[in-house]
Simulated assay, not measured.
Amino acid sequence: MTSRVTLISAAISEALREARFDDGSPVDASGLRAAAAAVDAGAVPAGDRLWVSPGVRCRQTAEALGLDGAVDVPELAGLEVGRWRGATLGEVSAAEPEAVGRWLADPTAAPHGGESVRAFCDRVAGCLERAAEQDGRIVAVVEPEVVRALLVRALGAPESAFWRVDVAPLTATEFSGRAGRWNVRAGRPLEGRA
Rank of each mutant, 00 (worst) to 15 (best):
R102A: 12
V39C: 05
L79Y: 07
E98G: 10
L150K: 09
R49E: 00
A43W: 11
E133N: 07
V141T: 08
A95S: 14
G101A: 15
D40S: 15
A34D: 15
P107I: 12
L89R: 12
W84H: 04
A70G: 06
G66V: 08
V73D: 00
H112Y: 01
I138H: 02
P54G: 13
R153S: 15
L89W: 14
A154G: 10
P54E: 05
G113P: 00
C58K: 08
A109F: 14
R123C: 09
A41D: 11
S53V: 06
R102S: 09
R85G: 05
G78C: 10
D106V: 13
W103R: 02
A77C: 14
G69H: 13
D122F: 08
Q60R: 11
A109E: 13
A38W: 02
A99S: 15
P144L: 06
A109M: 15
L150V: 09
S53N: 05
E115K: 12
A34M: 11
V71S: 08
P144K: 04
L104D: 03
P111Y: 03
P45R: 03
V117E: 07
L104S: 06
E98L: 11
V92C: 02
G136R: 01
A105P: 02
R49A: 00
G42E: 10
A94T: 14
R49P: 00
C58F: 10
A125F: 08
V92D: 03
E129W: 12
V71P: 02
E145R: 02
A110K: 08
A109V: 14
C127L: 08
V81F: 11
L32K: 10
E98F: 10
P97T: 08
G78Y: 03
A87R: 15
T108F: 05
W51T: 00
R148Y: 13
G114E: 15
R57E: 04
A109C: 14
E133G: 14
V81K: 09
A105S: 10
V117P: 03
V71N: 04
E75R: 14
V71D: 05
E133R: 15
L50K: 09
A36I: 08
V44E: 01
F120H: 11
E98I: 07
V141N: 05
C121S: 04
V146D: 06
D122N: 06
A140W: 04
A87N: 12
G47E: 03
W51Q: 01
V146Q: 07
L67S: 04
A87L: 15
D40N: 08
V56W: 02
P97S: 05
E129Y: 11
